[in-house]
């Protein structure tokens, strides 16, 4: 218990200084458990709109668990429970009136491994629209095209829209999955190590894409790759053993970390 109290002190970062806009997401004193395992310990943070925020930390530090809180993907795990508040656009997303499906339309997610449906390229992107009950073929076709253009996949696949998405390369599949998310027109996109299964060239193209998407979306990305975090993110949060150790502007985290643990991690002494 004493260590937790100590850590709680560490977490208190003067967030007002680093957040210059009204926050898009705010989390207050969040604890997460899986059964008896305390996965996230009293984390508080705010995230600005139209920024890229990177969550870094060694595996098992709780960063993916924390990310899945934002679109309630943890709901399906029976042993999951939490204590704390999380608001997106000022609304409590775990409130009684929250419609999970609505929330997930607003908060999109891209996963670690590309996971296209075993359907055609077109149907993959159209999926989110069809489940909303949109039937107008023109609207669907338009949105599919726009989404594929946003991820720079349109030119590569425009003649093969009916082909199975499984025939695409890994990098193309991941861009397709991003397009699928964009088609639903979210305002937040969660990315759970989106390039960890990809080759360096595909990774670079996804990173470029993330940089561009920032103009329209708020992006939170979990990554193992510290170079990636420093290249693409505006803010970086370092997690360790369920604690948010340090959260600051990316350049500050990587040049002048305040905490010894952060410094050790980014300099590769552990992890």
């Amino acid at each position: 218990m004493t260590t937790t109290t100590k850590n709680r002190k560490i977490e208190k970062i003067p967030q007002e200084n680093i957040l210059d806009n009204a926050s898009k997401i705010s989390i207050k004193e969040m604890d997460i458990w899986y059964g008896a395992f305390h996965a996230i310990k009293e984390v508080s943070m705010k995230i600005n709109p139209n920024t890229v925020t990177a969550f870094i930390g060694p595996s098992g530090c709780g960063k993916s668990t924390f990310l899945r809180l934002f679109n309630r993907m943890n709901d399906y795990i029976e042993s999951f429970h939490f204590d704390g508040k999380i608001k997106i656009d000022g609304k409590n997303i775990y409130g009684k009136k929250t419609n999970i499906e609505e929330l997930r339309k607003k908060v999109g997610m891209v996963f670690q491994k590309p996971n296209p449906f075993p359907k055609s390229i077109f149907e993959n992107v159209a999926y989110g629209l069809r489940i909303q009950g949109i039937k107008d073929k023109k609207i669907i076709a338009e949105r599919v095209e726009n989404s594929l253009k946003q991820v720079a996949l349109w030119e590569e696949v425009k003649n093969d829209l009916k082909k199975s998405a499984l025939a695409l390369s890994g990098g193309q599949q991941q861009r397709l999955c991003i397009a699928r998310t964009l088609a639903v027109q979210p305002s937040v996109i969660l990315m759970d190590e989106p390039t960890s299964a990809l080759d360096p060239i595909s990774t670079a193209s996804i990173e470029d894409l993330i940089f561009k998407l920032k103009e329209k979306y708020t992006i939170i990305i979990v990554t193992h790759n510290m170079q990636q975090a420093s290249r693409i993110s505006d803010y970086t949060a370092f997690f360790y053993m369920g604690n948010l150790v340090e959260y600051n502007k990316t350049e500050l985290i990587f040049t002048k970390p305040e905490k010894k643990q952060t410094e050790n991690y980014i300099s590769g002494k552990f992890g």
Binding site: N71, M73, Y76, E101, E102, L103, R104, K105, G108, M109, F111, N115, P116, F117, P118, Y127, G128, I131, Q132, C177, R180, T181, V184
Partner: peptide
């Protein structure tokens, strides 16, 4: 695949 569908609001 199921997660992808849920994440799209299904």
């Amino acid at each position: 695949l199921k997660e992808a569908s849920f994440a799209l609001g299904a």
